[in-house]
Amino acid sequence: MTLLAWGFDGLLLLGLLGLAWKALNSTDLFSAIALFIAFGLLMALVWVRLEAPDIALAEAAIGAGLSGALLLAALARLRGMEGNVTSNTGVEEAPNNIDARLVQWLSAILLLPVLFGLVYGVLSLPGNAVGLSAEINANLAASGVSNPVTAVLLNFRAYDTLLEVFVLLLALIAIWSMGSIQFNRSIETIGKTSLETTSSVLDTLVYLLVPVLMMVAAYLLWVGAHAPGGAFQAGSVLAAACVLLLLAGWPLHRLLTAMRLRLLAVAGPVVFVSMAAYSLIAEGALLQFPPEHAGTLILLLETVAALSIAVTLAALFSGGQGQHE
């Protein structure tokens, strides 16, 4: 049995390294993206093998699913800009060949210290680390949830999650600052060529899948209190539903007008910060929840955060800012 597990893990590792190498080395951007998506799926399996189902869920939904959609959308726009569908190699083009080499070598040299730092970090780990799981389990009752991962993310170290939510918002602002495309207009440039007139099959798929996705998102949000799941997983599943709707040409921009899009995107960070400020004043410590209300507060936080994450990810995919009424 252990031999089988070793063999499986070995295959997984080799596949991961092979896919990473091919994805970095591929000159065709489309196959690089396809390889990256496959890499994300294998990575999710690795997290399953490491018995971290929370991260596996997030990796499958964000790493393989949404990042892939994001990259493909970016590629579609790049090709639209170039006007020439076939010239997508970048590295191979003659005039900036030397520049590309230089960049490769420079980044390799700059990455070397990082590599040494990582190796040093791994080697200097204490041999018999006990971790914090005993302490977490001892305090789990006070956290308001029974899933230790959620307890850490939303209670014991909630400021980590607070910062993550702000990173997402920052990414959205960065993308919006680069130019303004309208929320729905931007999608037309992606989907126009192939999806335009094939609506009946796509519409049926949307009719059947979107309710299921919404239910799965709600389930993940709810189950996060006592099993793998939570705001990020739920948010990314909901974002996937939005992406599906956008690709199928549904008028999502009428629901998510410019103002609503902005309000929803900042709702999570705002609720998080106000809760942090309140707990700082009332409890004397940042994001310290009173144990008797912790469960409710965490669910509230996660619900708002999941909505913000979903809207932010969908807006990242579309690149658009929403229409003014």
């Binding site: 060529t193 192939s194 999806l195 094939t198 099959v201 796509l202 049926t204 798929l205």
Partner: peptide, 21 residues
């Protein structure tokens, strides 16, 4: 069932897109 639904629809979309091109 979900994979059946997604697989069948996506295959149709890919094939139809290829035909259109």
């Amino acid at each position: 069932l979900l994979v059946l639904l997604a697989g069948a629809s996506v295959s149709y979309l890919v094939a139809n897109g290829a035909l259109k091109r």
